[in-house]
Simulated assay, not measured.
Amino acid sequence: MGHGYEGEASNSAVAKALGISEEDVDNYVTIDTNDSDDGLVYNYIAVFNEATPPEVLAAAGVGEDDLSVELSVNVFDEEE
Score class of each variant (00 low, 15 high):
Ser21Thr: 14
Ala9Phe: 12
Gly2Asp: 12
Asp65Ala: 14
Tyr42Met: 02
Val75Asp: 02
Glu79Pro: 04
Glu50Met: 05
Asn11Asp: 11
Asn43Ser: 14
Asp66Pro: 08
Ala17Val: 05
Val41Pro: 08
Asn34Trp: 11
Asp24Met: 07
Pro54Trp: 03
Gly2Tyr: 09
Asn43Cys: 14
Asp35Val: 01
Glu79Leu: 10
Leu71Gly: 01
Val14Phe: 04
Thr33Met: 07
Gly7Ser: 14
Ala15Gln: 03
Asp77Met: 05
Thr52Phe: 10
Ala59Arg: 05
Glu8Trp: 13
Tyr42Phe: 10
Ala51Ser: 13
Val73His: 04
Ile20Phe: 02
Thr52Met: 09
Val69Cys: 07
Asp38Pro: 00
Lys16Ser: 15
Val47Leu: 03
His3Lys: 10
Tyr44Ile: 03
Met1Cys: 04
Gly4Gln: 01
Ala9Glu: 14
Val56His: 03
Val62Tyr: 05
Val25Met: 07
Ile31Arg: 05
Val69Asn: 04
Asp32Gly: 11
Tyr28Ile: 06
Asn11Gly: 11
Val14Cys: 04
Leu40Phe: 14
Glu8Ile: 12
Tyr28Lys: 06
Val62Gly: 03
Asn43Glu: 13
Asn43Leu: 09
Val41Glu: 11
Ser72Thr: 10
Asp32Cys: 09
Ala17Leu: 03
Asp66Val: 15
Gly7Ile: 13
Asp38Asn: 13
Ile20Thr: 04
Glu6Gln: 14
Thr52Asp: 09
Ser68Arg: 06
Ser10Thr: 10
Lys16Thr: 15
Glu80Ile: 09
Val25Glu: 04
Ala51Gly: 07
Ser72Asp: 08
Val56Asp: 06
Glu50Ala: 12
Glu55Asp: 11
Val73Thr: 08
Glu64Lys: 09
Leu67Thr: 10
Glu78Ser: 10
Tyr5Asn: 09
His3Leu: 08
Asn34Ala: 10
Glu50Cys: 02
Leu67Pro: 07
Ala46Cys: 14
Glu22Ile: 00
Leu40Arg: 15
Gly39Ser: 07
Asp37Asn: 15
Leu40Glu: 15
Asp26Phe: 12
Tyr42Arg: 03
Ser68Val: 02
Phe48Asn: 01
Ser36Asn: 10
Asp32Ala: 13
Glu80Ala: 15
Ser10Phe: 06
Val14Gly: 04
Gly4Asp: 00
Tyr28Asn: 08
Asp26Gln: 13
Thr30Lys: 15
Val75His: 02
Asn11Pro: 03
Asn74Val: 07
Ala51Met: 12
Ser72Phe: 00
Leu18Asn: 00
Tyr5Ser: 09
Glu23Pro: 01
Asp77Lys: 13
Ala60His: 05
Val29Asp: 06
Gly2Pro: 12
Pro53Gly: 12
Ile20Pro: 00
Asn11Leu: 11
Gly2Met: 08
Asp26Gly: 12
Leu40His: 15
Ser21Asp: 02
Ser10Pro: 06
Leu57His: 00
Gly4Pro: 00
Asn11Arg: 12
Asn43Lys: 14
Ala46Glu: 11
Leu18Ala: 02
Gly7Lys: 13
Lys16Phe: 11
Glu23Trp: 01
Gly4Ala: 03
Pro54Ala: 13
Ser12Thr: 15
Gly61Leu: 10
His3Thr: 06
Met1His: 09
Thr30Leu: 14
Glu78Ile: 08
Asp32Ile: 07
